[in-house]
Structures are given as C-alpha cells and as structure tokens.
C-alpha cells in the first residue's frame, strides 16, 4: 500500500464531505423555514427580525452563507441551534459518542453470532442446518427495525419484564443498568446485520472451500477442522471486513430508528428532533457528522483489509 494511495483515499474523504455539505446546504436552504422567525417567534417586529437577519448573515448571497458555514466548520464551529441557542457541534459530538457505543456493541454482537452461523451453513450446505440459517436470515432481512423494536419491547419489557422498555443510562453511572438498557437496542440493530453478514460468510466460505489450495490441504491428509481453521477461514472472513464497513451506512440508518424508539440521546435522535423542529444548523451538522463517520469507517476498513491481506497492492 503506497503512501500515494493513502493520500488519495484521504482526499476522497474530503471530496465526499464537500459533496455532502453542498447537498445538505442546498436542502436546508430550500426548506421553508425562516431562522429569524424561529428564534424570535411569530410576533416579533419587522425591525427586530431585520436586525437579527443582518446579524446572522441571512441577507447575504447564498454562496457567501455557504462559505461562512464551511469556514466555521473548518474552525470547529458548527453554528448555533435555533431551538436551544446552544452551539450545535459539542451537542452532536456528545450524542455521536453514545451512538458509536451502540453501533460498536451491535457490530460485536453481530460478529459473534453471524460468523458461526455462516460457517455452520457453509459446512452443512444443503442440509437442515443450512436451510435453518437461510430461513433465519430471510426473516431477519425482512423485518424493519421499528417492527422488531416494538415487538421486542412488547415481549421482553411488557410481558416478561426482563428488561427496561426504553431510556438510557451512561456506562459510568450504573454499569449494570446501562447494559440492561442497551440490550434490546443492540439486539434490534444486530438482527438485519446478522442476517446479511451470515449469508456473506456462507457464500465466501463455500467459494473458498472449492479452491485448489483447500483440495491440496485435504489431499496431504490434514483433518477437516484444521483445513477449515488454518486454511479456509482466514480467506473467507477477509471480505467480511468490507461488507461490514459498507453495512455501516445501513447501521447508521437503523440507529436513527432505534434511538427514537428506545429514547437513546444519540445522534439519530438529535437528528430526528432537529428535522421535526426544522433546526437548520443542527440538521446540517448532524448529517455531515454521519457522512464523515461512514467515510472514515470505510477508509479504516480498506486500510485494515490491505494490512491483513498481503496480496492486495493498492496504488
């Protein structure tokens, strides 16, 4: 992997953010919301509104507003929320932290379940176990998060009373309670990912098991399990890194719904609140931070892939 390639990938991240910032700015510009009216209320005098518009730069040409916004972000200033009057950046990054915790736990839980399921399905290809895994994965990819979340709350919180229905407790405050509150959200987010990734692991492993080097390993007398563990798995699991990274976009979408249902103060819930209140600076910052997260995760995944797979020579 040449430094040239890494630089090119980093430049691409900036290009991505530039495109996303243009889209978000365009969308929020067209939105029929007057920031000055939102801040001062419907009954404000025209004079007061004019003064505020002047101060906020709302009378400037659009490209100048965009430039001011972009320069602000580069300096770490994402603007001020129209709803709360607080700076948007710190609020969004704090919320992002909670969402990342949720996402990381979900990915871990997903990998623990999806990889063994995929392996079992591949080894027992065409038998009952394989059918069962594909049945589970078909049902899994077909259930939207809001359905699984609602049913899970009904089942585990209302009926069985095993887990709290909604809410968020910081890990540092009360570890046990925090984990109890995170269990259902993590479970719900993982379902679609488990279904997707276990199918990928299955098909990758089936491909790898047909490769010549696996046949020669078998012919030289290695046992089935050491062929699987020592030869096949490593190559079958590598593409999973890319799949999981691409799924992060889907994961972030799921996080939005799950945070809304379970009342977790993460970036998804902040975004929904901002969208409903037409809080333009908050929407802009939230979408940009989400897109940045996605790009950075995919960049890291590419680097990890290249580091683990010596055959790959990016240039």
């Amino acid at each position: 992997m040449s430094p040239n390639y890494i630089l090119k990938r980093i430049a691409l991240i900036f290009y991505t953010l530039l495109v996303v910032s243009l889209i978000v700015f365009a969308i929020t510009q067209i939105l029929p919301a007057d920031a000055a009216v939102m801040m001062l209320g419907e009954n404000a005098t025209d004079q007061a509104l004019d003064a505020l518009r002047q101060r906020m730069g709302l009378n400037d040409p659009v490209w100048m507003q965009y430039a001011h916004w972009l320069i602000g972000i580069v300096q770490g200033n994402f603007g001020t929320s129209l709803r709360t009057g607080q700076p948007v950046g710190p609020v969004m990054f704090e919320a992002l932290g909670r969402s990342l915790l949720l996402a990381l736990l979900s990915i871990t839980f997903m990998l623990i379940l999806a990889i063994p399921l995929g392996i079992i399905a591949a080894i027992r290809r065409g038998r009952v176990a394989d059918m069962l895994v594909s049945l589970i994965s078909y049902v899994g990819v077909s259930l939207p998060e809001f359905v699984t979340a609602t049913v899970a709350v009904l089942l585990f919180a209302d009926w069985l009373k095993w887990l709290p229905p909604t809410g968020y407790v910081p890990l540092t405050e009360n570890f046990g309670s925090a984990i109890a509150h995170l269990t259902l959200p993590v479970f719900v987010i993982s379902i679609i990912l488990i279904a997707h990734v276990s199918r990928m692991v299955r098909s990758e492993l089936i491909d790898v098991l047909h490769a010549d080097y696996i046949r020669s390993a078998r012919l030289k007398g290695l046992s089935g399990s050491s062929v699987l563990m020592g030869h096949a798995l490593r190559n079958a699991l590598l593409p999973t890194i890319t799949i999981v990274a691409l799924d992060v976009g889907y994961l972030l979408g799921g996080v939005i719904v799950v945070e809304e249902i379970f009342a977790i103060p993460g970036i998804g819930r902040q975004l929904i609140v901002a969208i409903q209140a037409r809080d333009l600076p908050a929407i802009q910052a939230g979408v940009l931070i989400m897109a940045a997260t996605y790009s950075i995760v995919n960049f890291l995944a590419d680097m990890l892939y290249a580091a683990l797979d010596k055959r790959i020579q990016y240039d």
Partner: peptide
C-alpha cells in the same frame, strides 16, 4: 459521496 448519507436519513431530509 452521496451514498455516505444513510438512505433512511436521505429520505427523511
């Protein structure tokens, strides 16, 4: 670049 915005979020916007 456009695909780095989750489709649900894009649809919401």
């Amino acid at each position: 670049a456009v695909m780095s915005i989750p489709s649900l979020l894009f649809a919401l916007l």
